[in-house]
Design a protein around this nucleic acid. Structure first.
Length: 460
RNA sequence: GUCCCCAUCGUCUAGUCAGGUCUAGGACACUGGAUUUUCAUUCCAGCGACCGGGGUUCGAAUCCCCGUGGGGACGCCA
């Protein structure tokens, strides 16, 4: 695995300003394969469309890659021997390869554009889809050897544009030229390119180059409805998960599982293990539907597994951003709150609401929680008994509080847990949250007594 | 419309390539129960699928064909 290999894969996005989940997974699979084989992962920017390619768009892309933990060996900021890694800077190379095809007799000019010339008998046919008379070519069908799907045979029957009349080069051409010039050995890309591949192979052959190994991975489909997930769909942008404070390793782990699996049911795995086990044999052929419930589950697992120090370090900025804490918040107190909250949290997105009452006296009493607590027993009576009992305490450890409540219960002929729900409600306004004893301890005696008194007064 | 790819629980999937061990396994979600001071965790149980039809075979989720369904490609977009 760590052995050097000749494998060279590439991820060739066109910067649009967003990092689409499908692109992210294509990048991920390429990266996994490179790391698995000890090969080289190349990042090539397909920025031929100058109109929509901005520095911001590129930055967004690179940021997304970094967030996902996908490091590239060659490309922007990394350099490499076969650059430049921006298509916009490679026109001289394209011109050179195009000249080869012209010299070959495999390219010709028409209406100011340069077309690729297919080999075979020509005839004219009315094409229903394009609703026009078209010149078609009876070509020898091309068989593509796909590492995931096996042999796929498809014929290309119309000449296509290599260079547009405005001087820009077409996608199919530059894509192949770059892959040849960059010595790409494995092309791992979305299944939407499968039909284009025959065209690409034609170009390889015309250029006298050996086609790489192709591996077409399944597409990510909409959660509901038809078709593949597009940038307009909810949840389709990596940026969204960044904003919602998902754990990048969790998102990456989830994406690995969309279309690939290790066959033994293992799902949550350190990336090193996934790298070791990743191969084309485990890649699915069918499109996969994006299931955010599962993503959330994996994210929660990662969250709970975080070392408490890491959890605190990650939570701080999020709580600050939500206005739950500020510079005046004590380090130790914050740490204590987070330490008892981590196991109850599902995600960073909901953490702020989960812990808000720790940091303000201006919290509300949840009506649903209130209803539940008041459903049975005499909570107000219990609360009235509780306040003086707690007030007497000199020491405020979990065990001290526990003993006090237990003693009180025995004296009053109640059960210990007759006091718990109302205590929690009075100090937090909630019916759920961290372990009650820990919660009271962290809140501190003063605050607990004050809140309980306040609650009792408000109720009368 | 033409061509290409695909087809197991609601979803992600194992099993398909090398037919029997599959009364089809796991995970998410959902439901119920146990534990529990709340919430959650954990544990147990339940729900739930081989798209249809033909064939081949002693035997098919697995192989073949047709149908249907889903996805994709058919730009002087990438």
């Amino acid at each position: 695995m760590t052995q050097e290999s000749a494998v060279r894969v590439r991820f060739a996005p066109s910067p649009t300003g967003f990092f689409h989940i499908g692109s992210a997974r294509t990048a991920l699979f390429n990266w996994l394969y490179a790391r698995h084989t000890g090969g080289t992962f190349v990042l090539r920017i397909e920025d031929t469309d100058s109109a929509r390619n901005t520095p911001e768009a590129l930055a967004a892309l690179l940021e997304g890659m970094r967030w996902m933990g996908l490091d590239w060996d060659e490309g922007p900021e990394a350099g490499g021997d076969v650059g430049p890694y921006f298509q916009s800077q490679r026109t001289a190379i394209y011109a050179e390869y195009l000249q080869k095809l012209i010299d070959n007799g495999r390219a010709y000019e028409q209406d100011g554009a340069i077309f690729f010339k297919l080999l075979g008998e020509r005839y004219t046919e009315f094409d229903k889809y394009k609703n026009a008379e078209l010149e078609k070519v009876r070509t020898e069908p091309v068989t593509v050897h796909d590492a995931i799907r096996g042999d796929v045979t498809r014929a290309v029957e119309t000449d296509f544009v290599l260079r547009r009349s405005n001087g820009d080069y077409g996608f199919h051409f530059v894509n192949v030229v770059d892959d040849i010039a960059m010595n790409i050995t494995h092309v791992i890309r979305g299944e939407d390119h499968l039909s284009n591949t025959a065209r690409h192979v034609e170009i390889y052959r015309a250029l006298g180059a050996e086609p790489p190994v192709f591996a077409h991975i399944p597409l990510i489909l909409k959660v509901d409805g038809k078709g593949k997930m597009s940038k307009r769909d909810e949840g389709s942008l990596i940026e969204e998960y960044v904003k919602r404070h998902f754990i990048p390793e969790a998102v990456r782990n989830f994406l690995c599982l969309l279309g690939w699996n290790p066959k033994d049911g293992q799902e949550i795995m350190p990336i090193a293990e996934i790298i070791e086990r990743f191969d084309f044999d485990g890649v699915q052929k069918e499109g996969a539907r994006f299931d955010e419930k599962k993503l959330s589950h994996i994210n929660t697992e990662y969250l709970r597994a975080l070392p408490v120090e890491t959890f605190c370090w990650m939570a701080g900025p999020i709580l600050a951003e939500a206005g739950v804490i500020d510079e005046s918040t004590g380090e130790d107190y914050l740490h204590a709150v987070l330490a008892i909250s981590q196991e109850k949290a599902r995600d960073f997105e909901g953490l702020s609401e989960l812990v808000r009452y720790f940091f303000t006296e201006d919290f509300t009493i949840d009506s649903g929680a209130r209803e539940r607590v008041f459903k049975k027993g005499e909570p107000m009576a219990r609360l009235a008994e509780l306040v003086p009992a707690l007030e007497q305490l000199d020491s405020w450890l979990d065990s001290d509080i526990d003993h006090a409540i237990l003693g009180l219960a025995e004296k009053k002929g109640q059960r210990k847990f007759d006091y718990f729900p109302i205590a929690r409600l009075a100090v937090s306004g909630q019916a759920g949250g961290p372990d009650l004893l820990a919660l009271l301890r962290v809140l501190g005696k003063e605050r607990v007594i004050a809140r309980m008194r306040g609650f009792a007064e408000a109720a009368t």
